[in-house]
Design a protein around this nucleic acid. Sequence first.
DNA 1: TGTACATCAGTGAACGCGCGTTCACTGATGTAC
DNA 2: TGTACATCAGTGAACGCGCGTTCACTGATGTAC
Lengths: 211, 211
Amino acid sequence: MTSEEAQRGYHHGNLRTALIAAGVELARTGGPSAVLLRAASREAGVSHNAAYRHFANQEDLVAAVAERCMEHLGRLMVARMDEVTERGPVPRALARLAAIGRAYIDFARTEPGWFRTAFSSARPHDDAGPPLSEMDESLSPYALLTARLDEVADVGAIAADRRPGAEYVAWSAVHGISSLLLDGPLRALPGAEVEQVIETVLAGVTRSLGA
Amino acid sequence: MTSEEAQRGYHHGNLRTALIAAGVELARTGGPSAVLLRAASREAGVSHNAAYRHFANQEDLVAAVAERCMEHLGRLMVARMDEVTERGPVPRALARLAAIGRAYIDFARTEPGWFRTAFSSARPHDDAGPPLSEMDESLSPYALLTARLDEVADVGAIAADRRPGAEYVAWSAVHGISSLLLDGPLRALPGAEVEQVIETVLAGVTRSLGA
DNA sequence: TGTACATCAGTGAACGCGCGTTCACTGATGTAC
DNA sequence: TGTACATCAGTGAACGCGCGTTCACTGATGTAC
Protein backbone atom coordinates (compact mmCIF):
# COMPACT_ATOMS: atom_id res chain seq x y z
CA MET A 1 0.00 0.00 0.00
CA THR A 2 2.63 2.50 0.91
CA SER A 3 5.34 1.35 -1.45
CA GLU A 4 3.25 1.13 -4.65
CA GLU A 5 1.76 4.50 -3.86
CA ALA A 6 5.20 6.02 -3.54
CA GLN A 7 6.21 4.78 -6.99
CA ARG A 8 3.19 5.98 -8.86
CA GLY A 9 4.69 9.18 -10.18
CA TYR A 10 3.75 12.79 -9.87
CA HIS A 11 1.14 13.82 -12.34
CA HIS A 12 -1.56 11.86 -10.70
CA GLY A 13 -1.06 10.20 -7.40
CA ASN A 14 1.39 11.06 -4.69
CA LEU A 15 1.39 14.82 -4.87
CA ARG A 16 1.68 15.06 -1.12
CA THR A 17 5.00 13.27 -1.23
CA ALA A 18 6.13 15.42 -4.12
CA LEU A 19 5.24 18.62 -2.32
CA ILE A 20 7.11 17.57 0.79
CA ALA A 21 10.13 16.64 -1.33
CA ALA A 22 9.98 20.04 -3.00
CA GLY A 23 9.64 21.71 0.39
CA VAL A 24 12.69 19.83 1.66
CA GLU A 25 14.72 21.19 -1.24
CA LEU A 26 13.49 24.71 -0.59
CA ALA A 27 14.34 24.35 3.10
CA ARG A 28 17.81 23.13 2.22
CA THR A 29 18.69 26.41 0.56
CA GLY A 30 16.53 28.92 2.34
CA GLY A 31 15.51 27.47 5.68
CA PRO A 32 11.99 27.28 7.03
CA SER A 33 10.90 30.64 5.65
CA ALA A 34 11.58 29.41 2.12
CA VAL A 35 9.03 26.63 2.43
CA LEU A 36 6.19 28.35 0.58
CA LEU A 37 3.07 26.75 -0.80
CA ARG A 38 3.40 28.47 -4.14
CA ALA A 39 7.09 27.67 -4.51
CA ALA A 40 6.61 24.03 -3.56
CA SER A 41 3.68 23.68 -5.98
CA ARG A 42 5.69 25.32 -8.72
CA GLU A 43 8.57 22.95 -8.05
CA ALA A 44 6.22 19.99 -8.18
CA GLY A 45 4.85 21.17 -11.52
CA VAL A 46 1.37 21.71 -10.26
CA SER A 47 -0.94 24.68 -9.89
CA HIS A 48 -0.37 26.60 -6.70
CA ASN A 49 -3.60 25.67 -5.04
CA ALA A 50 -3.53 21.95 -5.66
CA ALA A 51 -1.57 21.78 -2.42
CA TYR A 52 -4.75 22.45 -0.49
CA ARG A 53 -5.92 18.95 -1.33
CA HIS A 54 -3.07 17.62 0.82
CA PHE A 55 -2.31 20.27 3.41
CA ALA A 56 -4.64 22.45 5.41
CA ASN A 57 -2.32 25.41 4.98
CA GLN A 58 1.28 26.48 4.72
CA GLU A 59 2.05 25.72 8.36
CA ASP A 60 1.00 22.14 7.76
CA LEU A 61 3.42 21.78 4.91
CA VAL A 62 6.26 23.31 6.90
CA ALA A 63 5.60 20.90 9.75
CA ALA A 64 5.77 17.93 7.40
CA VAL A 65 9.00 19.25 5.88
CA ALA A 66 10.47 19.87 9.33
CA GLU A 67 9.81 16.26 10.24
CA ARG A 68 11.74 15.09 7.21
CA CYS A 69 14.63 17.35 8.15
CA MET A 70 14.66 15.87 11.63
CA GLU A 71 14.76 12.42 10.06
CA HIS A 72 17.75 13.41 7.96
CA LEU A 73 19.51 14.48 11.14
CA GLY A 74 18.64 11.24 12.89
CA ARG A 75 19.85 9.18 9.95
CA LEU A 76 23.22 10.93 9.91
CA MET A 77 23.60 10.35 13.64
CA VAL A 78 22.88 6.64 13.25
CA ALA A 79 25.27 6.32 10.32
CA ARG A 80 28.12 7.98 12.18
CA MET A 81 27.44 5.95 15.27
CA ASP A 82 27.61 2.74 13.27
CA GLU A 83 31.00 3.68 11.88
CA VAL A 84 32.62 3.55 15.31
CA THR A 85 35.29 0.87 15.42
CA GLU A 86 36.45 1.00 19.04
CA ARG A 87 36.44 -2.44 20.66
CA GLY A 88 36.57 -2.15 24.45
CA PRO A 89 33.13 -1.59 26.02
CA VAL A 90 33.96 1.73 27.65
CA PRO A 91 35.84 3.34 24.76
CA ARG A 92 33.19 2.05 22.40
CA ALA A 93 30.27 3.50 24.37
CA LEU A 94 32.03 6.85 24.71
CA ALA A 95 32.97 6.90 21.04
CA ARG A 96 29.41 6.19 20.03
CA LEU A 97 28.19 9.02 22.21
CA ALA A 98 30.76 11.39 20.75
CA ALA A 99 29.88 10.23 17.23
CA ILE A 100 26.26 11.26 17.47
CA GLY A 101 27.29 14.60 18.94
CA ARG A 102 29.71 15.16 16.09
CA ALA A 103 27.06 14.18 13.58
CA TYR A 104 24.63 16.67 15.08
CA ILE A 105 27.15 19.48 14.81
CA ASP A 106 28.23 18.47 11.32
CA PHE A 107 24.63 18.37 10.19
CA ALA A 108 24.10 21.92 11.42
CA ARG A 109 27.20 23.08 9.56
CA THR A 110 26.71 21.25 6.29
CA GLU A 111 22.92 21.57 6.12
CA PRO A 112 22.08 24.76 7.99
CA GLY A 113 18.79 25.15 6.14
CA TRP A 114 17.62 21.71 7.19
CA PHE A 115 18.91 22.18 10.71
CA ARG A 116 17.01 25.42 11.16
CA THR A 117 13.90 23.95 9.61
CA ALA A 118 14.01 20.86 11.80
CA PHE A 119 13.85 23.02 14.90
CA SER A 120 11.57 25.70 13.54
CA SER A 121 8.38 23.84 14.20
CA ALA A 122 9.41 21.02 16.45
CA ARG A 123 6.47 19.62 18.29
CA PRO A 124 6.72 19.62 22.06
CA HIS A 125 8.31 16.51 23.47
CA ASP A 126 5.66 14.66 25.42
CA ASP A 127 6.44 11.62 27.47
CA ALA A 128 3.08 9.93 27.25
CA GLY A 129 0.37 9.59 24.67
CA PRO A 130 0.49 8.62 21.03
CA PRO A 131 3.13 10.30 18.91
CA LEU A 132 1.99 13.47 17.23
CA SER A 133 4.04 12.69 14.15
CA GLU A 134 4.61 9.75 11.87
CA MET A 135 8.36 9.96 12.24
CA ASP A 136 10.26 6.82 13.05
CA GLU A 137 10.93 7.13 16.76
CA SER A 138 14.28 5.37 16.41
CA LEU A 139 15.56 8.34 14.39
CA SER A 140 14.67 10.90 17.05
CA PRO A 141 17.86 12.68 18.12
CA TYR A 142 16.62 12.74 21.68
CA ALA A 143 15.95 9.00 21.70
CA LEU A 144 19.36 8.35 20.17
CA LEU A 145 21.06 10.45 22.82
CA THR A 146 19.21 8.76 25.65
CA ALA A 147 20.18 5.35 24.32
CA ARG A 148 23.82 6.39 24.05
CA LEU A 149 23.87 7.72 27.60
CA ASP A 150 22.27 4.49 28.83
CA GLU A 151 25.02 2.58 27.07
CA VAL A 152 27.67 4.67 28.74
CA ALA A 153 26.01 4.11 32.10
CA ASP A 154 25.69 0.38 31.47
CA VAL A 155 29.43 -0.03 30.99
CA GLY A 156 30.00 1.84 34.20
CA ALA A 157 31.65 4.88 32.66
CA ILE A 158 29.36 7.37 34.32
CA ALA A 159 28.63 7.93 37.98
CA ALA A 160 25.10 6.85 38.89
CA ASP A 161 24.23 10.21 40.39
CA ARG A 162 25.20 11.97 37.16
CA ARG A 163 22.99 9.98 34.85
CA PRO A 164 19.77 11.90 35.60
CA GLY A 165 19.56 15.02 33.49
CA ALA A 166 22.66 14.10 31.51
CA GLU A 167 20.56 14.34 28.32
CA TYR A 168 20.07 18.02 28.88
CA VAL A 169 23.69 18.79 29.56
CA ALA A 170 24.90 16.94 26.48
CA TRP A 171 22.14 18.15 24.22
CA SER A 172 22.51 21.75 25.32
CA ALA A 173 26.21 21.83 24.68
CA VAL A 174 25.93 20.20 21.28
CA HIS A 175 22.92 22.20 20.20
CA GLY A 176 24.49 25.36 21.54
CA ILE A 177 27.73 25.08 19.65
CA SER A 178 25.76 24.21 16.52
CA SER A 179 23.63 27.32 16.85
CA LEU A 180 26.52 29.58 17.72
CA LEU A 181 28.46 28.40 14.69
CA LEU A 182 25.45 29.14 12.48
CA ASP A 183 23.89 32.28 13.91
CA GLY A 184 26.20 33.52 16.55
CA PRO A 185 29.43 35.38 16.75
CA LEU A 186 31.34 32.22 15.86
CA ARG A 187 29.90 32.30 12.38
CA ALA A 188 33.06 33.55 10.74
CA LEU A 189 35.54 31.50 12.72
CA PRO A 190 38.20 29.90 10.48
CA GLY A 191 37.83 26.19 9.84
CA ALA A 192 40.79 25.03 11.88
CA GLU A 193 39.61 26.90 14.95
CA VAL A 194 36.13 25.54 14.51
CA GLU A 195 37.50 22.01 14.70
CA GLN A 196 39.27 22.80 17.93
CA VAL A 197 36.20 24.41 19.44
CA ILE A 198 34.10 21.37 18.61
CA GLU A 199 36.65 19.05 20.17
CA THR A 200 36.74 21.19 23.29
CA VAL A 201 32.98 21.17 23.64
CA LEU A 202 32.66 17.43 23.11
CA ALA A 203 35.43 16.82 25.62
CA GLY A 204 33.63 19.10 28.05
CA VAL A 205 30.48 17.03 27.72
CA THR A 206 32.31 13.80 28.37
CA ARG A 207 34.02 15.35 31.35
CA SER A 208 30.79 16.63 32.80
CA LEU A 209 29.58 13.04 32.95
CA GLY A 210 32.48 12.26 35.22
CA ALA A 211 33.75 9.78 32.66
CA MET B 1 26.35 66.70 21.49
CA THR B 2 24.93 63.24 21.97
CA SER B 3 22.86 63.91 25.06
CA GLU B 4 21.06 67.08 23.88
CA GLU B 5 20.32 65.33 20.61
CA ALA B 6 18.79 62.41 22.40
CA GLN B 7 16.40 64.69 24.35
CA ARG B 8 15.19 66.75 21.45
CA GLY B 9 12.03 64.81 20.82
CA TYR B 10 10.64 62.99 17.86
CA HIS B 11 8.89 65.23 15.47
CA HIS B 12 12.01 66.85 14.25
CA GLY B 13 15.37 65.61 15.31
CA ASN B 14 16.29 62.17 16.47
CA LEU B 15 14.18 60.04 14.20
CA ARG B 16 16.94 57.47 13.96
CA THR B 17 16.69 56.85 17.69
CA ALA B 18 12.91 56.74 17.49
CA LEU B 19 12.98 54.20 14.68
CA ILE B 20 15.36 51.95 16.55
CA ALA B 21 13.18 52.20 19.64
CA ALA B 22 10.14 51.28 17.58
CA GLY B 23 12.07 48.41 16.04
CA VAL B 24 13.04 47.14 19.46
CA GLU B 25 9.39 47.04 20.46
CA LEU B 26 8.49 45.19 17.29
CA ALA B 27 11.30 42.71 17.90
CA ARG B 28 10.11 42.15 21.44
CA THR B 29 6.81 40.76 20.25
CA GLY B 30 7.62 39.31 16.88
CA GLY B 31 11.32 38.66 16.71
CA PRO B 32 13.64 39.82 13.94
CA SER B 33 11.17 39.22 11.14
CA ALA B 34 8.80 41.74 12.70
CA VAL B 35 11.32 44.55 12.37
CA LEU B 36 9.90 46.15 9.24
CA LEU B 37 10.64 49.57 7.87
CA ARG B 38 7.02 50.42 7.35
CA ALA B 39 5.93 49.18 10.75
CA ALA B 40 8.73 51.02 12.54
CA SER B 41 7.96 54.22 10.65
CA ARG B 42 4.27 53.86 11.45
CA GLU B 43 5.11 53.35 15.10
CA ALA B 44 7.30 56.43 15.08
CA GLY B 45 4.49 58.47 13.54
CA VAL B 46 6.35 59.22 10.37
CA SER B 47 5.84 58.45 6.71
CA HIS B 48 7.18 55.07 5.73
CA ASN B 49 10.02 56.29 3.62
CA ALA B 50 11.43 58.84 6.01
CA ALA B 51 13.44 55.94 7.39
CA TYR B 52 15.66 56.05 4.33
CA ARG B 53 17.20 59.27 5.64
CA HIS B 54 18.67 57.24 8.50
CA PHE B 55 19.09 53.70 7.27
CA ALA B 56 20.29 52.41 3.96
CA ASN B 57 17.66 49.68 3.98
CA GLN B 58 15.73 47.32 6.18
CA GLU B 59 18.73 45.15 6.96
CA ASP B 60 20.48 48.18 8.38
CA LEU B 61 17.62 48.87 10.75
CA VAL B 62 17.48 45.25 11.87
CA ALA B 63 21.20 45.29 12.60
CA ALA B 64 20.82 48.40 14.75
CA VAL B 65 17.90 46.86 16.59
CA ALA B 66 19.81 43.62 17.11
CA GLU B 67 22.62 45.55 18.72
CA ARG B 68 20.21 47.10 21.19
CA CYS B 69 18.84 43.66 22.00
CA MET B 70 22.34 42.41 22.66
CA GLU B 71 22.87 45.36 24.97
CA HIS B 72 19.72 44.48 26.88
CA LEU B 73 21.09 41.00 27.36
CA GLY B 74 24.45 42.32 28.54
CA ARG B 75 22.80 44.71 30.96
CA LEU B 76 20.76 41.93 32.55
CA MET B 77 23.88 39.80 32.91
CA VAL B 78 25.74 42.63 34.65
CA ALA B 79 22.81 43.36 36.95
CA ARG B 80 22.48 39.74 38.03
CA MET B 81 26.20 39.41 38.50
CA ASP B 82 26.24 42.45 40.75
CA GLU B 83 23.53 40.97 42.94
CA VAL B 84 25.77 38.11 44.02
CA THR B 85 26.41 38.23 47.77
CA GLU B 86 28.80 35.34 48.31
CA ARG B 87 31.87 36.40 50.28
CA GLY B 88 34.68 33.85 49.90
CA PRO B 89 36.73 34.35 46.72
CA VAL B 90 36.02 30.95 45.24
CA PRO B 91 32.29 30.77 45.95
CA ARG B 92 31.96 34.36 44.83
CA ALA B 93 33.71 33.83 41.51
CA LEU B 94 31.66 30.70 40.82
CA ALA B 95 28.44 32.43 41.82
CA ARG B 96 29.17 35.34 39.52
CA LEU B 97 29.82 32.95 36.66
CA ALA B 98 26.58 31.09 37.35
CA ALA B 99 24.71 34.39 37.65
CA ILE B 100 25.53 35.53 34.14
CA GLY B 101 24.63 32.09 32.79
CA ARG B 102 21.30 32.23 34.59
CA ALA B 103 20.70 35.73 33.30
CA TYR B 104 21.37 34.61 29.74
CA ILE B 105 18.88 31.78 30.02
CA ASP B 106 16.30 33.95 31.77
CA PHE B 107 16.64 36.59 29.08
CA ALA B 108 15.93 34.01 26.41
CA ARG B 109 12.87 32.83 28.28
CA THR B 110 11.39 36.16 29.26
CA GLU B 111 12.34 38.05 26.09
CA PRO B 112 12.42 35.45 23.35
CA GLY B 113 11.84 38.06 20.66
CA TRP B 114 14.83 40.08 21.77
CA PHE B 115 16.95 36.99 22.21
CA ARG B 116 16.24 35.78 18.71
CA THR B 117 16.80 39.21 17.29
CA ALA B 118 20.10 39.66 19.08
CA PHE B 119 21.47 36.58 17.39
CA SER B 120 19.74 37.01 14.07
CA SER B 121 22.29 39.39 12.65
CA ALA B 122 25.21 39.14 15.00
CA ARG B 123 28.34 40.40 13.35
CA PRO B 124 31.22 37.96 13.25
CA HIS B 125 33.42 38.10 16.30
CA ASP B 126 36.81 39.39 15.21
CA ASP B 127 39.73 39.54 17.58
CA ALA B 128 41.55 42.45 16.02
CA GLY B 129 40.61 45.64 14.25
CA PRO B 130 38.19 48.35 15.20
CA PRO B 131 34.78 47.27 16.41
CA LEU B 132 32.18 46.99 13.70
CA SER B 133 29.48 48.26 16.03
CA GLU B 134 29.01 51.13 18.43
CA MET B 135 27.97 48.84 21.25
CA ASP B 136 29.62 49.22 24.60
CA GLU B 137 32.17 46.41 24.65
CA SER B 138 31.71 45.93 28.40
CA LEU B 139 28.15 44.74 27.73
CA SER B 140 29.20 42.05 25.27
CA PRO B 141 28.07 38.67 26.63
CA TYR B 142 31.25 37.11 25.33
CA ALA B 143 33.43 39.66 27.08
CA LEU B 144 31.46 39.20 30.29
CA LEU B 145 31.88 35.45 30.13
CA THR B 146 35.61 35.70 29.49
CA ALA B 147 36.01 38.04 32.44
CA ARG B 148 34.07 35.67 34.69
CA LEU B 149 36.17 32.68 33.66
CA ASP B 150 39.32 34.69 34.27
CA GLU B 151 38.03 35.47 37.73
CA VAL B 152 37.40 31.82 38.42
CA ALA B 153 40.87 30.96 37.19
CA ASP B 154 42.42 33.75 39.26
CA VAL B 155 41.02 32.34 42.50
CA GLY B 156 42.39 28.96 41.54
CA ALA B 157 39.06 27.23 41.10
CA ILE B 158 39.83 25.94 37.65
CA ALA B 159 42.67 23.75 36.46
CA ALA B 160 45.10 25.68 34.26
CA ASP B 161 44.80 23.21 31.40
CA ARG B 162 41.06 23.61 31.35
CA ARG B 163 40.98 27.35 31.00
CA PRO B 164 41.64 27.44 27.23
CA GLY B 165 38.42 26.99 25.33
CA ALA B 166 36.30 27.14 28.48
CA GLU B 167 34.34 30.02 26.94
CA TYR B 168 33.04 27.76 24.25
CA VAL B 169 31.99 24.99 26.59
CA ALA B 170 30.14 27.35 28.90
CA TRP B 171 28.63 29.45 26.17
CA SER B 172 27.50 26.44 24.15
CA ALA B 173 25.73 24.85 27.08
CA VAL B 174 24.00 28.04 28.12
CA HIS B 175 23.09 29.10 24.60
CA GLY B 176 21.99 25.56 23.80
CA ILE B 177 19.58 25.20 26.69
CA SER B 178 18.21 28.65 25.92
CA SER B 179 17.55 27.71 22.31
CA LEU B 180 16.11 24.33 23.13
CA LEU B 181 13.69 25.86 25.61
CA LEU B 182 12.56 28.34 22.96
CA ASP B 183 12.57 26.42 19.71
CA GLY B 184 13.25 22.86 20.56
CA PRO B 185 11.35 19.95 21.95
CA LEU B 186 11.68 21.37 25.47
CA ARG B 187 9.38 24.21 24.56
CA ALA B 188 6.40 22.82 26.40
CA LEU B 189 8.22 21.53 29.46
CA PRO B 190 6.40 22.47 32.70
CA GLY B 191 7.96 25.27 34.71
CA ALA B 192 9.20 23.15 37.60
CA GLU B 193 11.03 20.79 35.29
CA VAL B 194 12.53 23.68 33.43
CA GLU B 195 14.08 24.96 36.64
CA GLN B 196 15.61 21.59 37.29
CA VAL B 197 16.98 21.30 33.78
CA ILE B 198 18.61 24.72 34.06
CA GLU B 199 20.21 23.82 37.35
CA THR B 200 21.51 20.58 35.89
CA VAL B 201 23.04 22.34 32.91
CA LEU B 202 24.68 25.07 34.98
CA ALA B 203 26.06 22.44 37.34
CA GLY B 204 27.38 20.54 34.34
CA VAL B 205 29.23 23.62 33.15
CA THR B 206 30.83 24.20 36.52
CA ARG B 207 31.82 20.55 36.70
CA SER B 208 33.34 20.59 33.25
CA LEU B 209 35.74 23.27 34.47
CA GLY B 210 36.99 20.84 37.06
CA ALA B 211 35.82 23.21 39.79
C1' DT C 1 20.32 92.40 11.44
C1' DG C 2 18.64 90.97 7.10
C1' DT C 3 18.52 88.42 3.00
C1' DA C 4 19.62 84.71 -0.54
C1' DC C 5 20.53 80.33 -0.92
C1' DA C 6 21.98 75.52 -0.04
C1' DT C 7 21.08 71.70 2.57
C1' DC C 8 18.58 68.58 5.09
C1' DA C 9 14.47 65.84 6.82
C1' DG C 10 10.20 64.43 5.93
C1' DT C 11 5.81 63.78 2.56
C1' DG C 12 2.63 61.43 -0.66
C1' DA C 13 1.89 58.77 -4.51
C1' DA C 14 3.19 55.04 -7.03
C1' DC C 15 5.80 50.77 -8.66
C1' DG C 16 6.23 45.87 -8.63
C1' DC C 17 6.51 41.80 -6.02
C1' DG C 18 5.09 37.35 -4.19
C1' DC C 19 2.52 35.58 -1.02
C1' DG C 20 -1.79 32.80 1.18
C1' DT C 21 -6.20 31.78 0.34
C1' DT C 22 -10.85 31.26 -1.91
C1' DC C 23 -13.95 30.49 -5.73
C1' DA C 24 -16.27 28.10 -9.29
C1' DC C 25 -14.77 24.96 -12.51
C1' DT C 26 -13.23 20.51 -15.10
C1' DG C 27 -11.65 16.24 -16.01
C1' DA C 28 -10.39 11.72 -14.37
C1' DT C 29 -11.20 7.82 -11.28
C1' DG C 30 -13.85 4.62 -8.86
C1' DT C 31 -18.23 2.38 -7.56
C1' DA C 32 -23.23 0.63 -7.37
C1' DC C 33 -26.38 -1.70 -9.79
C1' DT D 1 -20.19 -5.71 -19.41
C1' DG D 2 -22.30 -1.34 -19.47
C1' DT D 3 -24.06 2.73 -17.63
C1' DA D 4 -25.15 6.54 -14.20
C1' DC D 5 -23.36 8.84 -10.83
C1' DA D 6 -20.55 10.36 -6.85
C1' DT D 7 -16.15 11.47 -5.51
C1' DC D 8 -11.70 13.04 -5.83
C1' DA D 9 -7.55 15.73 -7.59
C1' DG D 10 -6.14 19.35 -10.02
C1' DT D 11 -7.01 24.10 -12.82
C1' DG D 12 -7.27 29.13 -13.63
C1' DA D 13 -8.66 33.45 -12.29
C1' DA D 14 -9.08 36.52 -8.79
C1' DC D 15 -8.94 38.70 -4.04
C1' DG D 16 -6.50 41.38 -0.68
C1' DC D 17 -2.40 42.04 1.77
C1' DG D 18 1.82 44.32 3.23
C1' DC D 19 6.06 44.75 2.05
C1' DG D 20 10.66 47.35 0.18
C1' DT D 21 11.95 50.79 -2.60
C1' DT D 22 11.94 54.91 -5.76
C1' DC D 23 10.33 59.33 -7.41
C1' DA D 24 9.51 64.16 -7.45
C1' DC D 25 8.10 67.19 -4.08
C1' DT D 26 7.88 70.58 0.06
C1' DG D 27 8.83 72.82 4.01
C1' DA D 28 12.04 73.81 7.67
C1' DT D 29 16.77 74.67 9.21
C1' DG D 30 21.20 76.50 8.93
C1' DT D 31 24.82 79.35 6.81
C1' DA D 32 27.48 83.00 3.99
C1' DC D 33 27.74 87.49 3.21
